[in-house]
């Protein structure tokens, strides 16, 4: 996201409060989940060529006092805009909202988005529509999210809530003041690494990217950490050579981070390691034994099959195995197994 203008958000306009609660002017903050942004961008890509911006409804959750809004989902709403008038398909919006609420009752209507950073009087109209009593977000303010979608430029997002303006009812109906509110895009580690993988394919000719294995990921991570260590020790060496200004806060922080390694006696480590090795050895020995047992019973089972006797000798495991063989593929299958076995031994 590009650098943006700073603003101050101290209080939200006083809204009507639910009965029994004090109306409050506590500031609002908005959290946006990336899938909502993706779906907005997708909508912007598929917009009709003659439309500058498209709009849609934002769904999400709101904390009880209304100070925190989380935008989780959204859907497009058709609308047409000309120089003189704006038309929003309200029936469609209502139907879609009802359907969404049926599928996911916890995600409520929180506001609307537009795919351009511009605010105009139509924005005010739509904002008032979304914030109205009845179908709107009333008594909470509707959140307006603008996502700029100018090709070749950074994507910029802004969030607003609105306050009334004007002293007469008619004036207030088609105008409003947009109050910028702070917002934050939140995504988890897993989403981030997934996206990184996808976006790394964009520079390749065939637009494909193989998924890296755990081992490769580990290798990369180790190299990454080595790089960072290199940078830090460069700084520290510079400080020691009196080339860089020492910052005791930074040093203290480094020291704290480096002290996180637990203090353990080498003899303790050796003992624990040996204990662990013994455990591993026992497990691997047991695993081998079991494997041998299975092989053995396999052979006995197929042998019994060809000879037609010897069930008593094969034991329980062999018995079951033999049964399956009989019910399943018969002698040929047994032969196949035998072959596999031989290949392993080779």
């Amino acid at each position: 996201m590009a650098d943006k203008d700073t603003f101050l958000h101290l209080a939200r306009p006083l809204g009507p409060a639910p009965i029994g609660a004090q109306p409050s002017t506590a500031p609002v903050s908005v959290v946006i989940q990336p899938q909502a942004i993706f779906s907005i961008l997708d909508h912007a890509l598929r917009r009709p060529s003659d439309q500058d911006r498209v709009i849609g409804t934002l769904l999400g959750t709101r904390s009880e006092d209304g100070t925190e809004v989380e935008i989780r989902n959204c859907y497009a709403v058709p609308h047409t805009e000309t120089a003189e008038q704006v038309e929003v398909d309200m029936d469609y919006q209502k139907q879609m909202l009802a359907l969404h609420l049926r599928a996911n009752p916890r995600e409520v209507l929180v506001g609307w988005y537009a795919t351009s950073s511009e605010l105009n009087t139509f924005s005010a109209l739509i904002q008032n529509f979304y914030g109205q009593q009845g179908d709107g977000t009333w008594p909470h303010p509707a959140v307006h999210l603008t996502v700029s979608t100018v090709p070749g430029q950074e994507i910029e997002s802004r969030t607003y809530i609105s306050a009334p303006i004007g002293v007469t009812a008619e004036r207030a109906a088609d105008s409003c003041l947009f109050i910028p509110v702070p917002h934050e895009l939140k995504y988890g580690e897993a989403e981030k690494s997934g996206l990184e993988l996808i976006s790394s394919a964009k520079d390749r000719e065939d637009r494909s990217q193989p998924i890296i294995t755990d081992l490769e990921a580990l290798e990369r991570a180790v190299e990454h950490v080595l790089d960072m260590l290199e940078r830090v020790s460069n700084y520290v060496n510079n400080v020691l050579d009196e080339e860089a200004e020492p910052s005791s806060a930074l040093g203290q922080f480094l020291m704290n981070a480096l002290s996180l390694a637990p203090k353990v006696d080498p003899s303790d480590i050796e003992r624990d390691f040996n204990n662990h090795i013994q455990d591993v050895l026992v497990v691997s020995y047991l695993a081998n034994t079991i494997r041998t047992q299975i092989d053995l019973s396999n052979r006995l089972a197929t042998a019994a099959l060809t000879l037609g006797t010897g069930d008593a000798l094969t034991g329980e495991g062999g018995q079951r195995d033999g049964d399956r063989q009989q019910g399943g593929r018969g002698g040929r299958g047994g032969g196949g197994r035998g072959r596999q076995q031989r290949q392993q031994e080779a």
Binding site: D5, E118, T121, A124, S148, E154, F178
Partner: peptide, 12 residues
Amino acid sequence: MPGPTTTLLIEG
């Protein structure tokens, strides 16, 4: 890219 210059939207 600066933000919208005006957020007060009123006709008249």
